[in-house]
Write a protein that binds this DNA or RNA. Structure first.
Lengths: 154, 154
DNA sequence: ATTTACAGGACCAGGCCGGTCCCCTATGTT
DNA sequence: AACATAGGGGACCGGCCTGGTCCTGTAAAT
């Protein structure tokens, strides 16, 4: 069904929850679990991964917690997905050469690559800020088309 | 990794193989298996599913086989994906209401819906013909986005 | 020193995915 | 009519990945 994993889903919700708070604010795993209704152990797992990917900074010890490593407007959905489930690759071969032993005989490799970059482009133009402030919309990415966000490219 | 299933991957390759043949041509599962190097039993499985989804028409009996149900230019990648793995839904709630019990409290539902329709739009504008005739390209899709999508590393 | 809270694991059940096989039915061919 | 071919519709199975929990160690604040 072309799904992102639940881990990633959680990650986005958690990051969004952090992005909603005042600039530079931090929160610990427990608070975030309560705010988002995501089971606490899962929250820990996801936040750890996001910290490893340097999207979050962590503070250990009492009064510790997590904060965004960068402003919300510079964190993209593509980055979040890649942090939590590896490179975006609709088909194996999108992840790089040598993944498919039929590269030579495959006739649809190139078109896939284009589809792949289009989608990746879409995801890398949506920022955490854009997710959190739906009122601002995504103006910058759709400036040439003030109407509904139809993907009328192509 | 935001992957489509291998079944779907196979489906696209198989449909492309058929689309390369002269208009209205048919081919049986064995021929297609040889042409695409996909294991024969898998080919059967995939073609059956595509026929059920009415993307292919099948002819039973000796000299039977499969043919495209519609011209290649009217079959889209989105349709193929949906035929083989159900509705495209990056996150559960994209598939319709009632999938997530946190709909009310979720703050990122709407933005996801927009991302979802953008991606679905992309996939539904790429046709089988477009896959098979890479020389024609889809020029108009890339006119405003020169070069690789600037995103992040990896 | 004690408590808080992250780091880094291991661990586990369940489900889906990729793949194979079998029997039935429809259609040409002889 | 009989046979061969080829699709239809399943069942079936192993393995991996996903979703989820838990435990121990370590850093920081009081």
């Amino acid at each position: 069904m072309l799904r992102i994993s639940k881990l990633t889903d959680y990650g986005i919700v958690l990051l969004a929850a952090l992005a909603e708070r005042p600039l530079g604010a931090t929160a610990n795993a427990r608070e975030l679990a309560e705010a988002t209704h995501i089971p606490f152990p899962m929250v820990g797992k996801v936040l750890k991964a996001l910290a490893q990917a340097q999207l979050l900074v962590s503070h250990r010890g009492a009064k510790g917690g997590y904060g965004l490593a960068r402003p919300a407007e510079s964190i993209t959905v593509a980055e979040i997905i890649e942090a939590l489930e590896g490179p975006i690759a609709l088909v194996e071969c999108n992840a790089g050469p040598g993944h498919c032993e039929q590269e030579a005989s495959c006739h649809v490799r190139d078109p896939w690559q284009r589809i792949h970059s289009t989608i990746r482009g879409t995801l890398s133009h949506v920022t955490l800020r854009g997710l959190v402030a739906p009122l601002l919309q995504v103006e910058r990415t759709t400036t040439r088309e003030p109407g509904a966000p139809r993907g009328s490219h192509v």
